[in-house]
Design a protein around this nucleic acid. Structure first.
Lengths: 116, 116
DNA sequence: TCCATATATATGGTATATCGTATATTCAAG
DNA sequence: CTTGAATATACGATATACCATATATATGGA
């Protein structure tokens, strides 16, 4: 699945985007990825203290919505914002992260060190 | 219920905000209100072509989340962005409306004329 | 080839959201 | 104080979302 870099799986609308943000795991993952540029599944597992299937499932959903891009490097899969993600969506994520330093603050601590 | 102008019904977090945007009726209502400043229930019924209980229910949810403020004037209830809505949230709405002119375009047509 | 690690997905149960319909509330006018 | 218009809410039924568990896939190294 990684590396196919599919584009325009369907219409990327504001509604699709905000539905993707309407879950704690997905929102925190996106804000962290938006800040850090790229994170792998195990980074997010450690940061958010959630199970592997849970993280993976939500990342898959974000990938299928066209928000994230996955890149496999060896055994690891790294996720970053999709290059074709509209600028307004990128700005929304950046704005949200900047203006809400407390939200996802605990997660940010764990991100500094790589887990695996 | 109108006119109580309650504040801080609970923590207003990014997650609460984006959950509120994760529904077509609520998102379109918010973008229209963000553009127009203030709209009443029947304006939104006409704009979105949805039933009265449906519109009313979603507006109530937005009010309870602290996103909208309601103001009764005679038989009509007008909704606007809550004065205490954080600036970043306001910017998100404005940005989304500006950068997605097509979304909610049909609704915008109907808004020009008042319904009742 | 066999094993361990990282990641993905399938499945079924549970919780949450949304809806249509019916009913209640509020206000203005008579 | 009744009536009609605008809005709000209650109630079931249905749909959707989320989760934990189990299993599958892919990669690298022995």
């Amino acid at each position: 699945m990684a590396g196919q870099n599919k584009i325009s799986e369907s219409a990327f609308t504001p509604l699709v985007f905000y539905k993707a943000l309407a879950d704690d795991t997905r929102l925190q993952s996106l804000l962290l990825i938006s800040e850090q540029g790229e994170l792998c599944v195990c980074d997010l597992m450690a940061a958010l203290q959630q199970s592997q299937p849970k993280i993976s499932r939500h990342l898959a959903q974000l990938r299928k919505s066209g928000i994230l891009l996955d890149r496999r490097q060896g055994q690891w899969v790294y996720y970053s914002l999709h290059p074709q993600l509209p600028d307004w969506a990128r700005q929304v994520l950046a704005l949200t992260a900047e203006q809400n330093p407390d939200y996802a603050a605990r997660a940010r601590q764990y991100v500094t060190t790589h887990c695996c």
